[in-house]
Design a protein around this nucleic acid. Sequence first.
DNA 1: TGAAGATTGTTATATAATTAACATAGTATT
DNA 2: AATACTATGTTAATTATATAACAATCTTCA
Lengths: 211, 211
Amino acid sequence: MSKGDSISMSVIRRLPRYYRFLSELNEQNVDRISSTKLAQIMNVTASQVRQDLNCFGGFGQQGYGYSVSQLKDEIKNILGLNNGYKAILIGAGNLGKAVAMHMNFEKLGFELIACFDNNENKVGQKLNDLVVKNESELEEFCNNNRVDTAFLCIPRICVENILDKLYALGIKNYWNFSHYDITARYADTLVENVHLSDNLMTLCYRMNNTK
Amino acid sequence: MSKGDSISMSVIRRLPRYYRFLSELNEQNVDRISSTKLAQIMNVTASQVRQDLNCFGGFGQQGYGYSVSQLKDEIKNILGLNNGYKAILIGAGNLGKAVAMHMNFEKLGFELIACFDNNENKVGQKLNDLVVKNESELEEFCNNNRVDTAFLCIPRICVENILDKLYALGIKNYWNFSHYDITARYADTLVENVHLSDNLMTLCYRMNNTK
DNA sequence: TGAAGATTGTTATATAATTAACATAGTATT
DNA sequence: AATACTATGTTAATTATATAACAATCTTCA
């Protein structure tokens, strides 16, 4: 971060999208791009592109534009995708399995190092190269391994219990797929919520109200 | 909708959250609530609650507050969760399976009526009470059944092909889990995107930048 | 039934986000 | 090397969103 002022969440949430588009351009061997063209491709305004990027520093060059690969790397850095954060998955149900198998964590700067479930039927199953552990092993595991974040793919009703354990173990960053309100219980946590059903309800609304 | 002005997306995207909290209160047999209390529970301002609700009509009563069950039903209606929209799932991989098995579509006003995959290994598998069909049957199925929306759980590279087919069949509402930019191809579509990796990258950023 | 209290709906204000404008600085070309 | 062009970084203007304030009105209770 080169600029001191704190960045608004609106800008932050756009960064991954820039990263995606730039990665793609890079793969297509495009080596430079102007804010105008990038904006066109991404369907936003050029003004927004320039403003957003300038929150972090002047990566462009007047009269030339931006170097695609450089800009991509800069954003990767800003997002911190090089940190190799260690993550554990709690809940190896359908959603947990899908998350574990479907995501390319490596590319996202995470490493999934363990999966836990409290259901005996799930314990022992393989997810990629991980074997699902019994939830009873959670504490021991976390005491013996660095764990930066937990992915919570468990029913809402189970979250409170797990959350208390994780919090006590010092794990305070969560990727949460349930509707449990984590920050209401522990304020000093960092949570990204994935509310699939909210998203679908929004689609529903729009289906009704778009003539 | 009782008010004529078009509602901002910021408000729309908050509606499902209201609906969730109100449903919960209702299950707890709470029968009335003030904007102040609801705001407290939801961790927003009372002002926002009142403004949001008043976009759609005056559901409250001065000196009393809001009837929980009535307000819940109103929002359900505003969201259009009673329409019984018919949905098909494209892609029965890990994510598609998770979506099919994990979501309570009934509660969300959707009915999942078919699943398709182009992988012979997937075809014939059961997802809940549905049998995965071969993608080659897509057109025939859609011609013989009402289909309001498609859930796209396929790799990015497959989207274009499927999208063209669906669009030609008149299916223009999508719940999209890939990073393919649907509206760039067809402007007159309605898309809700679920960008799981964007979300995780945002968590990553915040992990780095929160003291 | 009337007065005190509560809470809405709504208007006004403040803050945040987006877009537009443009001076400045580099590129490309002859 | 000079000129025309391009496209940034940044400041200004606009628009959108969120918060505050309060008058109007319903509830509650004596």
